[in-house]
């Protein structure tokens, strides 16, 4: 499981970075989304991987039986914020397309 997660984070982050460095603003926004998926999975994995464990501490004092709830809370926050920021970037992207007449990130073709 750890290997699959590591590979998927790596592939998402790698493709995200490559797309961010492309000249078209649409590629940049897809790249940013992929990068934020990679980051969200990464935050999640920092609570240690464990399958079939509840995340709520309930009576039992054996902390090893539970998954760490904090990264799950963090990742929820990060998803919400990332989603809002992507939406905002989309608006700026459209404004830039409308004002400059091109979808190049610098506002002009080279």
């Amino acid at each position: 499981m750890a290997m699959i997660l590591a590979i998927s984070i790596g592939v998402l982050a790698g493709s995200g970075v490559w797309l961010i460095l492309r000249p078209r603003s649409f590629q940049v926004i897809i790249g940013l989304s992929l990068l934020s998926y990679a980051v969200n999975l990464f935050i999640f994995s920092m609570g240690r991987l464990r399958s079939g464990a509840a995340s709520i501490v309930n009576g039992s004092s054996d902390l090893g039986a539970y998954a760490d709830p904090l990264p799950q809370a963090l990742v929820l926050t990060a998803i919400v914020i990332g989603f809002a920021m992507t939406a905002l970037f989309l608006v700026v992207l459209l404004a830039s397309r409308g004002l400059t007449g091109t979808d190049h990130v610098d506002g002009r073709e080279r």
Partner: peptide, 8 residues
């Protein structure tokens, strides 16, 4: 808007 795109 152009500078803002880079900034964001």
């Amino acid at each position: 808007v152009r500078a803002g795109l880079h900034y964001v």
